[in-house]
Design a protein around this nucleic acid. Structure first.
Lengths: 139, 139
DNA sequence: AGAGGCTAAGACAGCTTGTCTCGAATGTCC
DNA sequence: GGACATTCGAGACAAGCTGTCTTAGCCTCT
């Protein structure tokens, strides 16, 4: 219960906004991002976006494209990867690694018909590829 | 992108530890919680647990049992509810309300056979009760 | 009255997070 | 080349969060 250093922090709100712009725009520059995220913004916002990109870089979510001027930036993770990260965090912190409570919640939530079908389709696809069973964690 | 006040914050690490102790012990007192969470702890830890309980109360996760001395505390949310909260947050923030990316991740992750069966069973149960269709959210 | 446990209120330091300042490096145009 | 603008990196900063701790007022029991 002692306060311990918290590594690999999650992507932050403002950082996520930058990431989403990157997902939409593909490779782009600080200037373009700043203009989009802070329309009519002051000069300072340029630096803000820059700092956010730096922190995203430290978190392994963004890459700078070498030999471009102005420097180009590119997302290294997609939305699914971010979702995966957060789900893993929820599972680790709240469920001690077992995803059963998570599934239980998914079931308790009233899924729409299409969502249900989607999930079932995923499951079927999974079952097929499970002919060659390589399970990562057995509990 | 301006910094906006962040209401209804999530349950914190130390707060979660208190909650888990409450889940395990049922209704109990600050003293018992402090002794369990900070074994051999100093007097100050009593106040720490107290503060955590207060903040948990403000978040609607804990209830004080009236007319008990010392005051009894009781959890108001269970693990599933917390998981639900976090999942909803992930879906809202990252998926703009659609759980498709979440399902996609679930499928991409290599579920164990038992987990897969579990999920399928949930789905089947869901399908049955869907004969009387009362879907809450359609997308 | 004194001791000891309970309770409320709040102070505090360290960290995170979004923002901003500054100066240096780099480019562009006449 | 020289003036000017843009880009870039490093860091400062305030507000808020989080876990911890102090203080002081209660109560109860002896």
């Amino acid at each position: 219960m002692s306060r311990q250093p918290q590594p690999d922090r999650d992507v932050t709100g403002a950082e996520l906004a930058v990431l989403e712009a990157l997902w939409e725009l593909g490779q782009t520059t600080v200037r373009v991002l700043a203009d989009r995220l802070y329309p009519g913004g002051a000069a300072a916002h340029y630096a803000t976006v820059q700092k956010l990109l730096q922190r995203l870089g430290e978190k392994g979510c963004v890459e700078r494209v070498p030999d471009t001027a102005p420097i180009g930036f590119r997302a290294l993770v997609d939305r699914d990867a971010l979702v995966a990260r957060r789900l893993a965090r929820v599972v680790d912190e709240l469920c001690h690694g077992s995803i059963t409570p998570l599934l239980s919640h998914l079931a308790a939530r009233e899924l729409s018909a299409s969502e249900r079908d989607e999930l079932r389709a995923f499951l079927d696809r999974l079952q097929q590829s499970a002919v060659r069973p390589r399970r990562r964690r057995e509990r």
